[in-house]
């Protein structure tokens, strides 16, 4: 079975809106249902809305894998709603944790660091580099995810064991570490920049001790206020 280009486009387009109506009790439920209905077709809409409208939450870029596999299940018509529900429960958490690790914790901060360093030295090259590289990975997963999901069906979960996920993460972790070292080069301009060392240590302690993000921002704010007044 193959997914037609038209359906692939429809699923891709709706996947861009997966988090539009994010709410606490249902999370991405409405976004997921819209995407699924777009892929499966209006004739099965009422069946899908009746049986699959529970809580849904996964990584927004990785949802394509899940939608692709679910569309396949509906196309084949062999799985019951309960079985599809069980697949969704397992798949959403697996892809959420893989996506969070890959994109939020590694790829995006590493590329943003690169953009900052390039941006300060070479201007607009930095932001453009970020947008191009980041969106190559982002759109690759969005588009290929639909096809992989559809072709592999429920076995799509095993893709997470694939070496490519781990390899990309390791490469960007290493790149992030190199860029962290390079970030020092922005600071090494004068004696006043020696202040960077105690301030970095202070913020490190706050991060390691898992102080809330709001508290860290408030401490930055206080630092700006104190320096401004002095």
């Amino acid at each position: 079975m193959r997914l037609s280009f038209g359906r692939l486009l429809k699923i891709f387009w709706h996947s861009l809106f997966i988090q539009t109506s994010w709410s606490f009790p249902s999370m991405q439920s409405m976004g997921f249902l819209s995407d699924l209905v777009a892929g499966v077709g209006e004739d099965k809409k009422s069946e899908i809305l009746k049986t699959q409208r529970g809580l849904f939450n996964t990584h927004p870029y990785m949802v394509s894998y899940i939608v692709g596999a679910t569309v396949r299940a509906y196309d084949e018509g062999r799985a019951s709603a309960e079985e599809i529900g069980k697949f969704l429960a397992v798949a959403q958490t697996s892809f959420a944790s893989a996506g969070d690790l890959l994109f939020w914790r590694t790829l995006r901060p590493a590329l943003l660091l690169l953009a900052v360093i390039l941006g300060i030295h070479f201007g607009i090259v930095g932001p453009i580099t970020f947008l191009v590289i980041y969106n190559i990975f982002h759109l690759f997963h969005r588009i290929k995810g639909i096809n992989d999901g559809y072709n592999l069906g429920w076995d799509v979960i095993y893709l997470l064991k694939d070496r490519r996920f781990k390899m990309v993460r390791e490469i960007f972790e290493a790149a992030g570490a190199v860029l962290s070292g390079l970030l020092f080069s922005l600071a090494a301009f004068g004696v006043s920049y020696l202040l960077v060392i105690p301030l970095t240590a202070l913020f490190m302690i706050m991060l390691v001790r898992r102080y809330s993000a709001v508290l860290i921002i408030i401490s930055v704010l206080l630092l700006v206020l104190i320096i401004g007044m002095v």
Binding site: A177, L179, L186, T200, L207
Partner: peptide
């Protein structure tokens, strides 16, 4: 710049620096 780089370094160390990536740092 001092404030930005300080917290940027802290953030990036926290995210990326592990035993196996120290060499890259």
């Amino acid at each position: 710049m001092i404030i930005g780089i300080s917290i940027g370094l802290a953030n990036s160390f926290y995210l990326f620096v592990k035993i196996k990536t120290v060499v890259y740092l």
